[in-house]
Simulated assay, not measured.
Amino acid sequence: MKAQHSIPIRIYWEDTDASGLVYHTSYIRFMERGRTELLRTLELDQRALLEGAAGGPIFFVVRAMNIDFRKPALMDDLLSVETRVTEIGGASIDLDQRVIRNGELLVGARVKVVCVENGRARRLPADVRTKFENALTAP
């Protein structure tokens, strides 16, 4: 896998607020899509994981997110959401996410996701950990 995963996002009316700028929570949705597509690229099927494919019904939740809103995006902009795996813990994965327009950083985020089973954090299953390790990049 490439060290950095990227997906395109087009800005629609529904993503903006009354001023015509992208509403701040829209960026969180865009980054969620980036994380979901990263899992697909790693061949981690969220439905299969939830149904027990890794030994128990697991899923990932956002534990922490630190967002830096630098510049606004506008309706019709074409953005890129970049996602990199920067660190892997026992039950967690740290990600760096960036929302870019024409090479310019608009929003950056540090995100920690945690593997959860039955409402509690659990260690990453070995095969899941290996897939994330293969995507690990230097911070």
Rank of each mutant, 00 (worst) to 15 (best):
V113Q: 09
A138L: 13
L79N: 07
K131I: 03
R120G: 01
H24F: 15
I93H: 00
L79D: 07
L95A: 03
A138V: 14
A138I: 12
R98S: 09
R47T: 13
K112Y: 00
P8L: 14
A91G: 07
V128L: 15
G108R: 07
P8C: 12
G103I: 06
Y12P: 11
S6L: 12
I67V: 15
A73D: 09
M75H: 11
V99W: 01
R98I: 01
Y27T: 08
I9C: 08
A135S: 14
F59A: 13
E87L: 05
H5I: 10
L38W: 03
A109V: 01
R35T: 07
A91L: 06
I100F: 04
H24A: 08
T16Q: 08
L42T: 12
M1K: 10
D127F: 02
I100H: 07
L74F: 15
E51I: 04
G20N: 09
C115K: 02
G103R: 10
M31H: 01
V116A: 01
S19W: 07
I11R: 10
V111N: 00
I28C: 05
T130W: 12
S80E: 15
D77V: 06
V61N: 01
T137D: 11
D77I: 06
E87N: 14
G89P: 02
V85P: 01
L49Y: 06
A18P: 12
I9A: 08
D17Y: 08
A121P: 15
I100M: 15
A135E: 09
V61W: 00
E117G: 05
K112C: 14
R110A: 15
L106V: 06
P8Y: 10
R70S: 07
R40A: 12
A91N: 05
G103C: 12
L79C: 09
D15G: 04
R29N: 12
K131D: 07
A53L: 04
R129P: 09
E43L: 10
H24C: 04
F59W: 11
A126C: 03
I67G: 00
R29H: 13
A54M: 11
L106Q: 05
A135L: 09
L38V: 06
N102K: 14
N66F: 00
R123M: 10
